[in-house]
Design a protein around this nucleic acid. Sequence first.
DNA 1: ATAAGGTGTTCCAGTATATGGAATTCGGTT
DNA 2: AACCGAATTCCATATACTGGAACACCTTAT
Lengths: 265, 265
Amino acid sequence: MARRNGVESGASNTGTLGKAIAVLELVALSDRPMRFTEILERAGQPRGTLHRQLSHLLEEGLLDLNADHCYEPGLRLLKLASSAWARSDLRRLAAPHLQTLHELTGETVHLGVLKGAEIIYLDKVESRQAVRMTSQIGKASPAYCTGVGKAALSVLPEPHLADLLRDAPFRCFTAQTITSLGALRVELEAIRTAGYAFDREEHEPGIRCVAAAIADPALSFVGGVSVTGPAYRVGEEVLQAWAPLVQRVAATITEEIAARLGPSR
Amino acid sequence: MARRNGVESGASNTGTLGKAIAVLELVALSDRPMRFTEILERAGQPRGTLHRQLSHLLEEGLLDLNADHCYEPGLRLLKLASSAWARSDLRRLAAPHLQTLHELTGETVHLGVLKGAEIIYLDKVESRQAVRMTSQIGKASPAYCTGVGKAALSVLPEPHLADLLRDAPFRCFTAQTITSLGALRVELEAIRTAGYAFDREEHEPGIRCVAAAIADPALSFVGGVSVTGPAYRVGEEVLQAWAPLVQRVAATITEEIAARLGPSR
DNA sequence: ATAAGGTGTTCCAGTATATGGAATTCGGTT
DNA sequence: AACCGAATTCCATATACTGGAACACCTTAT
C-alpha cells in the first residue's frame, strides 16, 4: 500500500548497483535502440566499465542485444513489473471505484501516483479497444502539466513541494502548458481550495481532464484519479460537472486506504 | 526485434548485480509482501550483506518499504517495463494481426515469447472489460503446459530443446497437465507435424486454446500466438476449426519478421 | 516494571570485485 | 588489400562488497 516517494538525492551512493541501473534506465527509456558508442557518450563512463555493465545486464536478461548490435530492454523487466503491478494494493483497492467512475462518465479513467516530480500511471479503464490497451500503464509524465499530477502536488506539505519543484524543468508541451514556477504555485493554490484539478490541454493538445488527489494519512504516498477525454467531447461545462464526482471517488479511495491502514496500526 | 533466449546458466557470473537482481526477483515474484527475516531465509545470504542490498534496491526505487517493514516491488520497475513493452518490435508488428484474429474468433488472443522454459506474454486482445485488462501481460507461465509454450518448444532445434527440458520440473496444474518428459516429446512431435498446438485445460481448468509458433529466421527468439476461451464455449470442433486460422496468422507474422530482418541484413 | 526474545540495523577489517586506461580484435568501407 | 572506427578484451590498481558480530529496537511474557 504505502509507498515512499522521498525526494531523490542527486548523487546515488548505491555503488555498483546504482550505476548499473542508471545504464539500464538510459537504454530502457530511450525511444530507439542504442548502439554501444551512443550509450558510451551519454553514460559518462569508461569504455571497459560500461562494456562489463552491459554484459552483466544482458546476462541477467534485463537488456537484450539484437542482431544489429543494438541494446534493447529485456523481457525480465516485463516479468518483474507485471508482478509489481498485479500486487499493488492501491491499485486493487481503487479498481472498482475507477470502474464506477468510468461507467458514470463514459470516458477514460486513470489512477496515478507521484514519484519524484513525475506521475506514474498504475491503472486505466477505458471503453474502446481501438486505442491500444494498457497504452500508458507504467508510463511516467511530468506532474506539473497533468491533472493527476497537479492534484497530487497540491496536497504535498510545503517543504517537500519546494524540494520537488526546485530542479523540475518546465517543458512546454502545448500552448496551455504551465511554464513558470509562479504560475504553478497559483494553480496549486486554486486546486487546494477547490479540491480538484483540471488539465485543459496542458500536456497533449485536444486532451482535457478533471482529477482529484488521493493519499494515505501519513502522506507516505500521494497520487490521484482522473477522468480524461477529447476536448471536442469534454467541454468546460462537462469538466465542471464531473469535478464533484471525481472528488468524491478520490475521497472514498482515500478513506478506504485510511481504514485499511488504521486498524492494523 | 530479435531476442536472445539462450539457455540460462545456473550460476551467474554477474557479480554484485546478479545477486541484487536475484534478491529483487525474490521479492517481486513473491505473492505477498516479505519482511526482512523471510527474505533472509530464502536469499541464502548473510544478514549484513542482504541488508545493504535491500537498502540499495530501496534507494534505487526498485523496491519499496511499506509501513509494516514489508518489502514490495517499486514503481521504477513499472516505469522501466512500460517502455520495454511499448518498444517491442515484435509486439508492434504483431498487433494488427492479433486484432484480426480476435475479430474473427471473438475470443481472447495472446502473443508470447519463450524465455528459458517459460512463456512471457507480450500482448493480449480481449473483448470484455469485465476481466481485468492487462491481466497477464508480462506474466510468465511454464512452456510445457500452455498452447503458446508448446508451439514455441516444437520449433526449437533438438540440442537447445534438450537443454531447456533437462531441469524443467513438471508441475501438475490440472488432470490434463503433461507430467512427463516422454509425454511432452510425443506431444511436441504431434505439434511439429500438425503445425499447431492445443491446450485442453492443461494449465487452468476450464480454459482451452489453439496456438501456433512464430520465430525469426535465425531462431534468435521463438514464441507464438493463441486463441483462448472457456471450455463450455470452445468445444473440440471449434478448436479444430480455428487451428488453420491461427496457423496462418502465425505464418504471416513470421514472414513479416523475416521481411523486416531480410533487407537490412 | 522488568526481562526475554525476536527483528531490524550498524560497524569494520579483510578481501573479492569493480574500475578504467590501453592494447587488441572485429567488421565494414574505400 | 588496406584502412578506419567500433567493439571487445586485458590487467594492475583501488574501490566497494563481504559477512561476522555487536548494537538498537520493538513486542510479548513474567
